[in-house]
Nucleic acid binder design. Structure first.
Lengths: 211, 211
DNA sequence: GTCTATATATAGATAGAC
DNA sequence: GTCTATCTATATATAGAC
């Protein structure tokens, strides 16, 4: 029986998405032409549009949370990291998970491109909004648990703090995208330091600077 | 004598730039057409290109540091804020200066758009690079002085810390651009808190969480 | 599934009258 | 300085053969 081979089809899609992602990262969405994608992926225009209905769909596919052949999806890994017994340790694991992608040189420009496109593309907005909500919920839960366990400043609003943890992680991407000298891997320890000092309960102190 | 009126010419340019900025913020650079800018600015295509050689030049003009009719340029205000006697106070003033623009709803999307365009536009890269270097130098100087005055953690590398202060400020823009629920004005106190805790010398503590 | 060829649209920029 | 009219290029997407 030789119907269509869905595995082959998926692999071909992946190849297109991967090729296009490099181009989108380097040149942006609108300045990357479908002709360039075709050439880089080694196929014709007619064939490319056999796999995707339009250019935008290729961009969306970059951000879809597919599990890959071997590993878990990001949502699954997030759930697992969140499940740890020690809330502070679990928080650090989640942070590591969310910062890992920043080491891929293509990721920061792609994320910036997505932020810019999100206003003009409700479908992408929904897609990334779901991701974002998932992360925010995980962080809020962990921060609440960490506060209850006396590991962080109980005066912090967990919801606001989670938003800022996300913002700090996003800094890794935006700084890398804006400045080639900024290397996420090198800056990770500083990010950890900032998170620790921000979230930690401040002990009593005498000579604090006045804000 | 009725030569050309340079003041009128500048005002007309400003009008175009301001109009275009709103459109670029809402729809991005490439998806905003010169025809739309013409219509919104109330002029013809022929006339628009009498003021600017091309569309990109309009975008550049948004980020040029012109003093406005009345006030100082941003570089001047930065120099003044930097000159204060108390380094910590001066640092806060510089931070306030650099966060002020984030309250304008058009600014965050414009900044994101600029980050994305900077890779494809060496001229814009140079323009924003100068700005960035100016701010970084100011912050590094102040952080060095503050460390010498015992106001912040002397173990921090002033150069790295300055980079992160900039990253934290940039968070205000990128978070606002990515999430409509994020209001920079409301989040400013949290930013100050993070800066204070990050930069402050940490006193000795017993029950710190382990990183 | 893959190709070649092309329809269709729309953009940025210019020419030249007033 | 401002306009109308238009040139030229290029992009996305489709049609239809193999």
């Amino acid at each position: 029986m030789r119907k269509i081979d869905p595995a082959k089809h998926r692999a071909r899609r992946r190849h297109i998405v991967h090729t296009a992602a490099q181009l989108f990262a380097a040149k942006g969405f609108e300045r990357t032409t479908t002709a360039e994608i075709c050439k880089a992926a080694g196929m014709s225009s007619g064939n490319l549009f056999h796999y995707f209905p339009n250019k935008r769909a290729i961009f969306h596919a970059i951000f879809e949370d597919d599990a890959g052949e071997t590993g878990e999806s990001k949502a699954e890994r997030l759930a697992r990291a969140q499940a740890g017994d020690d809330p502070w340790e679990a928080l650090l694991e989640v942070v590591d998970l969310l910062t890992a992608d920043a080491m891929d040189p293509a990721a920061p420009p792609l994320v910036m491109e997505a932020v810019v496109q999100v206003h003009r593309d409700p479908e992408l907005d929904a897609l990334l909004g779901r991701d974002n909500a998932l992360e925010h919920t995980a962080l809020t839960t962990l921060l609440t648990r960490a506060a209850a366990a006396g590991q962080i400043d109980p005066a912090l609003d967990p919801h606001d703090a989670a938003t800022w943890v996300q913002a700090l992680i996003a800094s890794l991407y935006s700084s890398a995208a804006a400045d080639p000298a900024f290397k996420p891997a090198e800056q990770l320890p500083v990010l950890h330091l900032i998170l620790q000092r921000f979230l930690q309960a401040p002990p009593h102190r005498e000579n604090a600077p006045q804000a």
